[in-house]
Nucleic acid binder design. Structure first.
Lengths: 432, 432, 432
DNA sequence: TTCGTTCTAGAATATTCGTAT
DNA sequence: TATACGAATATTCTAGAACGA
């Protein structure tokens, strides 16, 4: 029974007690051997304790445990009504009290009443002061760190802002490209036949047509509204159309966009908010833009649906927008086909869904009117007309050829890009 | 059941408990009514206590008794051997807890840990306390700061995510543009006829429409306004170069960017560290141009150099693209293929819907293999056919077709990019 | 079942409670894991709470939550009439109570009513020591937070860097696309005459001159390297002018952009919050893109106005581009002209090496002057020549029209998108 | 002296109540 | 009305202290 003389009796007894397999139903090691459990406090105190100690009180046993630095392990399922089967079991643990490692018992020390001698309170004060000094120095350091972090964050914000701006710029570029392409197409078409321009212009929203102005106006108005939460958004939007021709307004009509906006807003409101959004950004972000040229496809489809194929009509913004929708895929080609095909399209395809709060209603109308170009016109315009114009041109066939190299080049470049792009990995920070 | 409102619940319950004759076998008044006895601690704690309190622990009951000034009454028979019938009974007493005298309960006061009463005054203590108070307030502030930083970071994460998404969207747009261009080219080729270019050029870019001017004006206006809140940014904008066209910048693209990036990194690494990064870059923004059309030049040069279409040629493009498209899958591509290919070209190039899984190796390989296609192959595909083949090809529209594969390839490449790029994981750490 | 001894029982239980999938219908994590929801208050309090606590009162549960710093998350639909099915669900959140991050529980501190003490002698050193101990523990926590933030920031930086790189890549792609378009145009133009394309290209600054290649090469190389430590600033400078002609800048001219920028800035400033202006963004610099093709439009418009009023014609890319050139006005145009024009126009258009110095005044002027070119001039240049050349051509112009609207629409869409998307406000929380 | 036993207290958390905003 | 907090009490775990071996 007795253990090493160095080890207090209580610890020796406790070890023996826990090790004893014959009493495992009342007291035993925990699963991992890092603590021990007393399963039935009642029986344990009355049946086991007297065998080792001079008492049969659980409280005394616990007092000793605490005196030697043991701690009760709280059960999460506490609080449960003892009704059910929950046998009241208690668990105690000590870093140096582990199954299979009795040699660690020597490291367990009994607590001694520090008897704080009241007198030396003074010394303690000095100690306290010292500690305070340390604390203060630490504070300074911590504060510095915070400042640094804050600056860093500011830089990050600026950086993000910069990125966003660049992104916007790029976006504009894309827009321009599209525009350019449009121009190209036009010019080609034009060459074939004549005179369609004016119309186009009108439709395009650029032109001199009065509607245009109204649009602009509406735009302006709308902007203000956007100011709601008053964030930068407004400004942004405003910035949008500076100079070029602004066809954009028309677009606004489209619901899709609107819907998108709303979402965005909502997102903003919510996301921003307080605390944690968790980094799990995975979800976050409702993606923002949705626009893409898929519209071409859609437009085609929509057109088709409408029946009057005579015109291309990609003009219809709606169609375009729709196309953006990830879901609506299909027909992409149709549009193109129609566009390029000689057959006449459908003239009046009003912009559908506009809602915009009534601001753009006008615009739409104007738009639709424009769109009305008929198929014939298109044909006449002869998208490819130029090419065809001259028979001899063919030799020039070189035309196509010309493109090729460029495209290849482009393709290559892109490929390159892909390589570079590859993905920086971000290691997750994580934390603390 | 209810007791005087002045009397704490514990005392009320205790009185009721002791008075209850139905439980006299477990708890009852002492002979003289000056104290009460708990006869069977075991049963009492498990059967009675839960009926009155939120626990079934004798120790908790005792703790309350002590808290209210009750004291245990030592049993004379304590010394007796534990054997025999000595049912473990405990007795508690309080001067104001007497049978038949419930009115005295109001005199029983619960102890409050007034402990601290410090004897020595040491003035210093007050000083120390003062400092501690400061420290604590600082803690609060610091904590707030951290929280703020954390929120800021979360917002940043969100922002970055948003940017990434937008970027992706843009990417899609680009892809679409390419697609569109491809279509255009094709159509043109198809038309068979040629020649229109010159015209286009003219039209392009320069338009005489009055509206234009109006736009410009608006632009100007906007600028001024923008200056408002603007900070250094304005300067930036200023640097931007308003509207003229600036060709010079183009150059920037080249190396400079690279160098810049490197710098950025360095900064990061260094900056991160402790405190200040210094950036009082309020102005930072000055945008630098990154994008430019220099490509035109490059393209030209490369083209010139290459000119011979036989090379490159990434043929099997289609497959790749589809796989990439997250949203709009296959159809579009197929469509295009059909449209542009005079005859079913590469039927087998089903769009691999598989996702790249971030592996580009495959793609590249495919690519390279494709590239290897010799001119002839290309011709077959129709890619360069026009050039090489014969003039008649043109009518067949086969011309345009030629382009298709290349374009598709390009599109795919882009798609690839998207995949790779997207993957970035943002785990939000969180913390604080 | 066992929880960390350091973590209060309430938190352990709460965690277990929320994690328990079997009770997800009553209590579970929120979508993003940053908070938890109690769906059916009634059932939860009566069925779940008693299993973990000594009560079945929602209020007590909430009190504990508050005691530990949890806060109720207001439901957006709060204002709605209580009518219908409004399932009474409540949501609570704590910055350190997040799904998948149980290690943060240790950072949640229970509030202590520091009230006591007060005035009098508080005293005792012990008290002071106690406080110091708390302060120290807080320090540890704070330090941990800082570390976490730091890591998070590092990740953010990496992310931003990644985005920037990807952006750049995309930028290149766009550039390539432009290139391609340019090539296409050229080829077409060639058709008119035959076989000039190559030459033109060459001349246009793109040329095959060895230097060009060297540039490209350098670029690629540089990029890889860029990944190093580089900071953003460098990039900026780098971005400045490498070699080719950069048309991109041109875009900058447009006011919209500028306006937008300003707004952005303002936003930034405000968002950032308080203190620091932050701008010490050492890094900030990373250049932002400025380039856009707006010029196309502008050019078009201006041209139209000036020269061939009959049509819009934004088609000609070159013209547009030229117009954009702020600095080297004349020359650039000339170049393009030369390229596309059958006859060599203005030979000497050196690339303006001057740096923008951020002054646009000059640029603009140049620009305007350019724009002013009248039709005739253009004609001379050969720019519009094609159109005018053939009388009939004009009429044909109508053809193109069909496309135009669609394209314009598209352009607008994109613009819209920009507006919508961009605007996201990031309010910087700020704080500290 | 050190350790063991017992009774009581300290300290922190838990539960309830009341109320300020 | 509802959210959050102060305050008082309740429960638990641990510690202090007295006393004896």
């Amino acid at each position: 029974m007795k253990q090493n003389c160095n080890v207090p009796a209580f610890l020796s007894k406790l070890w023996t007690l826990v090790e004893d397999h014959s009493t495992n139903d009342l007291i035993c090691w925990s699963q991992d051997g890092s603590s021990f459990l007393v399963c039935d406090e009642q029986r344990f105190s009355k049946e086991i304790l007297p065998l080792y100690f001079k008492h049969s009180n659980m409280t005394s046993f616990v007092r000793q445990l605490n005196m030697y630095g043991f701690h009760k392990v709280v059960q999460v399922d506490a609080g449960l009504p003892r009704d059910s089967q929950r046998v009241d079991s208690v668990e105690f643990q000590h870093p140096h009290f582990r199954q299979t490692q009795p040699h660690l018992l020597g490291l367990i020390r009994r607590k001694v009443s520090v008897s704080r001698g009241g007198e030396e309170g003074m010394t303690q004060v000095s100690q306290v002061l010292l500690e305070l000094g340390q604390v203060r120095s630490w504070q300074d350091i911590s504060d510095s760190k915070l400042m640094g972090l804050r600056r860093e964050n500011e830089s990050l914000w600026r950086e993000v802002d910069s990125l966003r701006q660049r992104y916007q710029q790029q976006h504009k570029i894309i827009r321009k490209i599209i525009h350019f392409i449009a121009s190209t197409v036009q010019s080609k078409g034009i060459t074939g036949i004549k005179r369609k321009l004016p119309l186009m212009i009108d439709s395009s929203g650029v032109s001199h047509s009065p509607p245009k102005y109204s649009r602009s106006i509406s735009m302006d108005h709308s902007q203000p509204t956007s100011t709601l939460h008053g964030i930068q958004l407004d400004s942004v939007s405003g910035s949008v159309y500076p100079n070029g021709m602004i066809i954009s307004d028309i677009t606004h009509l489209l619901e899709p966009l609107i819907g998108a906006q709303k979402h965005r807003r909502a997102q903003l409101t919510e996301g921003q908010p307080q605390s944690s959004v968790g980094p799990s950004l995975s979800s976050p972000p409702t993606p923002t833009v949705e626009l893409d040229l898929s519209l071409l496809e859609d437009a085609a489809s929509s057109q088709t649906g409408q029946n009057s194929p005579d015109r291309i009509d990609p003009c219809d913004p709606l169609a375009l927008i729709d196309s953006c929708l990830p879901l609506s895929p299909g027909p992409s080609l149709d549009l193109l086909t129609e566009l390029f095909s000689p057959a006449p399209c459908s003239p009046g395809e009003g912009l559908p869904t506009d809602d915009l709060g009534g601001k753009q209603g006008t615009v739409q109308q104007a738009n639709s009117s424009n769109t009305q170009t008929d198929k014939q016109t298109v044909a006449t315009l002869g998208w490819d007309a130029p090419q065809k114009d001259g028979g001899e041109e063919e030799e020039e066939g070189g035309e196509g050829t010309d493109m090729l190299p460029a495209l290849l080049q482009l393709a290559e470049e892109v490929s390159d890009f892909t390589y570079l792009a590859a993905p920086l990995s971000l290691d997750a920070p994580s934390l603390i």
